[in-house]
Amino acid sequence: MTPLTAYLLLAAMIFALGLGIALTRRVAILVLIGIELMLNAANLNLIAFWRFGPHPEALTGMMFAIFSIAVAAAEAAVGLGLVIAYHRHAKTTDLDAMTRMKG
């Protein structure tokens, strides 16, 4: 197994775990945690490809990962604010109970 393959497989595992959390858990905060894990897996892919790519001195992949970290922080703030607002409104964070917009 080459080093790049190991890093990409690890990123795939983290992504699958995050997707599993986001699809199977019932609490809205845990779904946000799963989304954060998926974003982290994408960052790991970016940095691994940057390090093993032909021109690592251009810093492209690492810059992309740094911007992605900043955007993920903003996403976490907005998502958790939404969860808190919904909890104040409906007194629950259970996703299976959020059926008001169900068709």
Binding site: T2, T5, F15, L23, T24, R25
Partner: peptide, 30 residues
């Protein structure tokens, strides 16, 4: 008490399928 969603089996299968696809792509193409 209720930790997992009602259709958690479906979600788990989907996540496993995504992992299998990604792993296959990584192992065959790098």
């Amino acid at each position: 008490i209720h930790v997992y969603a009602q259709k958690w089996v479906l979600g788990l299968l989907l996540a496993a399928g995504v992992f299998a696809l990604l792993g296959w792509a990584v192992l065959t193409s790098i």
